[in-house]
Design a protein around this nucleic acid. Structure first.
Lengths: 142, 142
DNA sequence: CCAAGTATTGGGAATCGGTCTCAATCTACC
DNA sequence: GGTAGATTGAGACCGATTCCCAATACTTGG
């Protein structure tokens, strides 16, 4: 507390952290900590799993990456704001369509501001039944 | 295998399932499986934890409830479309503000339809920094 | 109403993602 | 070069969720 001022506690750019940031940069989609850990291994970089979790968590807290939970409940990460888009997923066959919508972007921003929030990112996921599956199930389940 | 045709496999309305549906109806917010299990116990209904998980899962699959993962990673459930709202969460202190926005609702519906999807539900989550936390960190990180 | 057949339940073990602990290692700075 | 503090990584640990399987409840035919 009463110390040498508050230093921004800058994260030290260690080899491991750079590797993780890099892996994140390569990925275009949300990746689970384990995915990244695997990718790193394959790339020859040896990084402990705990470190991956720690770093990802720190980055999320710092607002450098967005977090999201996939259906399986795993936390997945993606670096902030690269070609930003959302997903429309079929709850039956899993088919996924990428969608963009400046309308939501604007709305999200406005709402956040209205409540005094800043530096806002958002996650939107639409889940429905795609045309094909709807046709297949045609027998109205209920 | 070659039996009496495919029967819709309707879920049997057992005491347990009714109790769960009921508990879900009472709740206005997202509840974890364990929350529901507890509530049920308190209400005098004895239901196994496994059953709660199973039922909730089945209902989610049937589209009767929405699933969401709280920051802790737990899956939480809420019956579909009761006063529908979303959350604006502070990434620093966790404070949560409920928000509603017919604009998003409309957008979601329109986009889904455009891609041939029906029976769509959506999840929107805004994550940002609330005014207080922003003030505390006042040192403009960047 | 009784019996057989099948879906459902529930307790506890097994999984599994994620976090925590702590000694060894590395960096920055004096 | 030397010391303090940051970082790492292996494995123990933890809590949520799933799995297993015998006991139980509901359904339907006779």
């Amino acid at each position: 507390m009463s110390g040498t001022e508050e230093r921004p506690t800058a994260l030290r750019p260690t080899r491991q952290r750079l590797a993780i940031t890099d892996a994140l940069r390569e990925a275009t989609d949300f990746q689970s900590a384990q995915d990244i850990h695997d990718a790193l291994r394959q790339g020859g970089e040896k990084v402990g799993l705990a470190t991956v979790y720690r770093t990802l968590q720190a980055m999320a807290e710092a607002g450098e990456v967005d977090v999201r939970h996939n259906p399986a409940g795993e936390a997945t990460y993606r670096r902030c704001s690269p070609s930003h888009h959302h997903h429309l997923v079929c709850r039956s066959c899993g088919r996924t369509v990428e969608i963009t919508g400046s309308a939501v972007e604007r709305w999200a921003h406005a709402v956040a501001e209205e409540h005094g929030f800043t530096d806002v990112s958002h996650t939107v996921e639409l889940v429905g039944l795609c045309a094909e599956c709807a046709a297949r199930h045609d027998g109205p389940r209920r």
